[in-house]
Amino acid sequence: MRAVRWIRRNLVVIAGVLTLAYLIVPNLVVLAFSFNKPKGRYNYTWNHFSTDAWRHPCGVPGMCGSLGLSLRIAVYATIGATVLGTMTAFALARYRFRGRAATNMLIFLPMAMPEVVMGASLGTLFLNMRIQFGFWTILIAHIMFCLSFVVTAVKARVMSMDPRLEQAAQDLYASPAQTFLRVTLPLAAPGIAAGALLSFALSFDDYIITSFNAGNSVTFPMYVWGSAQRGTPVQVNVIGTAMFLLAVVLVLAGQLVAGRRRARA
């Protein structure tokens, strides 16, 4: 009877934990199969334990090159989208001007548009302008779809900032430039960082839009897609797991630093 009551009381938590498992299990599978030594080309069934792939992460032709391209594009796209997006966000959050509602709509639309539509349209445009597909077309596309997410993240942060803080800075002899550098930017930083991080993740992971604008360039997701037909090398699991662990370590480190800072203060 007590067990039944316990289950009833914690039904939501049990359901939540099951959902969480649903989210995490594929990552665990990726992790486990990064230590597999598959029989044949397909890494779907467990054969036997091996650290080969971890010792030779670049042991398959083309993969690390595509990884490099993806990272390079992600870095540039993040910088581009963050700079443009932050400026746009400040304009939208801080000023009332003609065309503000239209601009908000323009920012919202790319997020409400299926990727395949955006990718195909931009690809058509490049094609007809006879622009050579490659690094630059991918970068342009990535900045385009990351921009809205940066604007949204930064705008939310800037709107929640107390405008009196900047007025206080001006009142305390800070010129507009100093006010921006010493007060506005540090206060908006968490929003900008969130937008940048999101941009990086979106750009690094994008397959659909990229596939329409890449030409012969192969990004990491495109490599994975291509290899899925022929049989994915184990190294792909290694990269996936490494990214996952890196993210977890970074988040934990961030938590630790924040916790330490709180404890010291």
Binding site: L20, L23, I24, V25, P26, N27, V29, V30, F33, N43, Y44, T45, A201, F204, D205, Y207, F220, P221, V224, W225, A228, T232, V236, N237, I239, G240, T241, M243, F244, L246, A247, V248, V251, L252
Partner: peptide
């Protein structure tokens, strides 16, 4: 828990979908 919800993002979308091929093999 929040971290566990967000962390899968950092493993490529495609790799994780491919993991389902293994799970549902």
């Amino acid at each position: 828990v929040m971290m566990l919800v967000i962390a899968p993002f950092f493993t490529s979308f495609l790799i994780r979908t491919l993991a389902w091929e293994t799970i549902l093999a």
